[in-house]
Computed example of a mutant assay.
Amino acid sequence: MTLPPFHLAFPVHDLEAARGFYGGLLGCPEGRSAAEWIDFDFFGHQIVAHHAEGMEPKHSNPVDGHDVPVPHFGAVLPMEEWRALAERLREAGTAFVIEPTVRFEGQPGEQATMFFLDPSGNALELKAMRDPGKLFAK
């Protein structure tokens, strides 16, 4: 199943830090930009970092024994790409909110997942499904 790309705009406190994080560490190609925003190709999806002062407080919800940060955004990657990115993030000294792990083991929604923050404190989740066809399975 191929899903259409999404578009997401989100606040950051420092565009150059966002450029280094998304473009450098995550390897997301940069698209259009202006003095107050930058487009990135986030694993085939368009995200836009907008300069904004003052970030909203973060919350969390319990999911499978972890405190999942809310709000968050992310992408579903092929398993090998997820593993390579997890290793690159570990090597870069990324402080994970939730370390790379497998959750819902043995269930239809079994997935590898990791949560971390960008330099502005935006929470990201990157995951890979054991069976990609079961992304929305109950």
Score class of each variant (00 low, 15 high):
residue 134 K to A: 13
residue 32 R to E: 08
residue 136 F to W: 13
residue 16 E to G: 02
residue 17 A to W: 15
residue 76 V to F: 03
residue 125 E to F: 09
residue 35 A to L: 04
residue 34 A to E: 03
residue 76 V to E: 14
residue 44 G to M: 05
residue 64 D to P: 04
residue 77 L to P: 01
residue 33 S to Y: 14
residue 41 D to S: 05
residue 68 V to M: 07
residue 28 C to T: 07
residue 133 G to W: 07
residue 84 A to M: 07
residue 101 T to Q: 13
residue 90 R to G: 00
residue 123 A to S: 14
residue 75 A to Q: 02
residue 138 K to A: 14
residue 102 V to C: 13
residue 20 G to D: 09
residue 133 G to L: 12
residue 121 G to L: 08
residue 123 A to D: 11
residue 137 A to T: 02
residue 59 H to I: 02
residue 101 T to G: 06
residue 93 G to W: 00
residue 49 A to V: 02
residue 59 H to N: 11
residue 70 V to K: 00
residue 34 A to Y: 01
residue 73 F to K: 06
residue 71 P to D: 01
residue 36 E to W: 10
residue 43 F to H: 08
residue 15 L to P: 08
residue 122 N to T: 03
residue 35 A to N: 00
residue 58 K to N: 07
residue 92 A to C: 06
residue 129 M to A: 05
residue 96 F to C: 11
residue 20 G to M: 10
residue 115 F to I: 03
residue 95 A to H: 08
residue 28 C to E: 10
residue 66 H to W: 08
residue 47 I to E: 05
residue 91 E to N: 12
residue 136 F to N: 10
residue 87 E to G: 03
residue 42 F to D: 10
residue 11 P to G: 08
residue 75 A to F: 01
residue 107 Q to T: 11
residue 75 A to V: 08
residue 2 T to S: 14
residue 55 M to V: 12
residue 90 R to V: 01
residue 109 G to W: 10
residue 95 A to W: 00
residue 7 H to A: 09
residue 119 P to G: 02
residue 49 A to Q: 03
residue 114 M to A: 07
residue 73 F to W: 06
residue 112 A to R: 10
residue 9 A to Q: 14
residue 77 L to W: 01
residue 126 L to V: 11
residue 100 P to M: 04
residue 96 F to D: 09
residue 89 L to P: 01
residue 114 M to G: 02
residue 41 D to V: 03
residue 97 V to K: 04
residue 62 P to C: 05
residue 112 A to P: 05
residue 49 A to C: 05
residue 59 H to C: 05
residue 136 F to H: 15
residue 24 G to K: 05
